[in-house]
């Protein structure tokens, strides 16, 4: 009997095996070699690659530039995540009806999600340029500003403690990431039984009350999971920061992934780059633990 059970179990695992095989070969192996690399002074341009223990980690932590970039990483991840969640929620609420054109509008709302970064970064960089920005052109024409705004360059312009280039970068990060959340929230919203909303209305609840006491609780679990999952992705976000500014001006928009790409492919210090990557891994682990906590309560 026990033997039979084991065979059954083995057959269950056989279903998972292809996925595990692919993941181990193509994701886990490179990750492990990344971790391995981080203990070596691994410079691709040299023949010898001495073992240095945790030196790479110490060198990074004692570099003020790295600490600043580490802080940027967290800052961008938190703010981009928060704002894109708000925008995703707002747009989902706006588009959660069944009008005639809603399908089209939703599909248009998805656009930023499906556009390759190579494309939209060129366009956004144009939006932000001093001489060619349509935003500047309009503002100047209306006489609101006298000189063009340098959206990605004017570090002296500060709003709420953050400089203009940081805000500009955030705008693009939000633009590029809200659509995923919008999708998730739309799904969650459609999950809320209509009769609960109707019942609340019959009880005399106004729109705000419906939102506060029916809608919010309905999407809360999804929201928490989406936020923690997207936190993991945000911490290791690379494309927008790299393509739009490469971390400039003066490291204001530099994040760990961009920094480690530069360490690896500009300075060829793969050991340092790997160590920087491990720090990201540690940061993301915090978000992962939150995620696991949240999902545990959902288990049956």
């Amino acid at each position: 009997m026990l033997k039979q059970r084991n065979i059954e179990l083995l057959k269950d695992y056989a279903l998972i095996a292809p996925a595990l095989l692919i993941l181990v070969a193509l994701v886990i192996y490179p990750i492990l070699s990344g971790i391995y690399l981080s203990f070596f002074d691994y410079n691709l341009l040299r023949e010898t690659q001495p073992y240095v223990g945790i030196d790479n980690y110490i060198v990074l932590l004692s570099d003020p530039r790295f600490l600043k970039i580490l802080w940027n990483t967290v800052l961008f991840a938190v703010l981009a995540n928060a704002f894109s969640t708000l925008l995703g929620l707002a747009s989902a609420l706006l588009l959660n009806s069944s009008g005639r054109f809603v399908g089209l509008l939703r599909a248009l709302g998805y656009l930023p999600w499906i556009t390759p970064a190579v494309v939209f970064v060129v366009i956004w960089s144009w939006m932000f340029s001093g001489s060619f920005s349509p935003i500047n052109a309009v503002l100047m024409q209306w006489g609101i500003i006298k000189s063009p705004i340098s959206f990605l360059g004017d570090e002296k312009m500060i709003f709420l403690g953050l400089s203009l280039p940081v805000w500009s970068m955030l705008v693009v990060r939000i633009w590029a990431s809200y659509a995923f959340k919008m999708t998730m929230f739309l799904a969650a919203l459609q999950n809320i039984p209509q009769d609960r909303i109707d019942a609340a209305r019959v009880d005399g609840a106004n729109s705000w009350h419906v939102f506060r006491y029916v809608t919010m609780p309905g999407i809360m679990p999804v929201l928490l999971v989406v936020v923690s999952l997207s936190m993991i992705w945000n911490l290791s976000h690379f494309e927008v920061n790299y393509l739009l500014t490469a971390g400039g001006p003066k490291d204001l928009t530099n994040v760990i992934t961009v920094y480690l790409y530069q360490l690896a492919f500009v300075q060829w210090k793969f050991g340092h780059a790997a160590a920087a990557g491990i720090y990201t891994l540690l940061l993301a682990s915090v978000a992962a633990i939150v995620y696991l906590r949240l999902t545990r309560s959902e288990e049956r």
Binding site: S236, F238, A264, G277
Partner: peptide, 9 residues
Amino acid sequence: TQLLPGAVT
């Protein structure tokens, strides 16, 4: 598998 940034690997 989601934790380490792709650029490292």
